[in-house]
Amino acid sequence: MKAIRDSYADTLVELANEYDFYVMDADLAKATKTITFKKAFPDRFIEMGIAEANMYGYAAGIATCGMPVFASTFSAFAAGRAYDQIRNSIAYPHNHVIIAATHGGILVGGDGGSHQCLEDIALMRAIPEMTVLCPCDDAETRACVKAALLHDGPVYLRLGRSEVPSLFEHVAFEIGKGNVLRDGKDVAIIAVGEVVYRAAKAAEFLAGEGVEAAVISMASIKPIDQEMIRYYAQKTGHVLTVEDHNVQGGLGGAVSEVLARCCPTPMAMLGSQDRFGRSGDPEELAKLYGIDPQSIADSAMRLLDR
């Protein structure tokens, strides 16, 4: 078990030996884990204080000089508070800034709805030419962080807070490609981030009921893997999306946009059903919002009308 935010920080330290870049934070280095990088490379870490708009402006200015920047804070204060700076100073001029945001979604737990950003994927996905990534485990996170660094242009990287099991031993991650965790012919469960392992558990429950569920980690939310979505929609005839995010504009929205264009397929979308989050134990909240393994399995059964 390892938290995705820790995988992020460890990867930054590894990459720093080979590549030149800066890391910034807005007084949340202990929570986003960029403190790990700060300890290893103090001269390449920039503390910006509690001023996210200014941080993303600085990041853009540094990036214009040819230096990539990872700028971290919580999702709500990146995609939310600094939306206009990300749009106008980073994305529109195509500056190579990686907006690496932790604490998205209800799995944040106790901090409650103010901090549980349920719309960051939607906001970032709607910005033209923005790349949006959300990895599910250690291996995928390592691959995503490296891909974001080598990518030419802005990237929004959504990073989970809680500990998750390793799902992939090795990931040949590519922006625009999904990763198949489990093959299946009855239903395709497409998930992102910390809920992917819950979807994998759901698939085990479903196997016990004689249902073969495919499980896909769609870490590359934008550009999304249209070919893979089409393939599994046609193969299984049933698509279930799972995300710790509002289904409106999130992964559910993104997958349905693909299916509506290529092959309309019965779908169910799990995640926040247009409701804000609340304080609570993450596992308890997962059940309340229907993204725990049992709820995912139950939804799949309903989708299959069994």
Binding site: Y58, A59, A60, A63, T64
Partner: peptide
């Protein structure tokens, strides 16, 4: 050197460039 238009953002970017010069 920098895209602008949404008011209030230019000084942060300019300061970022200046900080880059200092660090480098």
């Amino acid at each position: 050197d920098m895209s602008t238009g949404s008011l209030g953002q230019g000084l942060s970017a300019a300061a970022g460039m200046a900080l880059y010069a200092k660090k480098q």
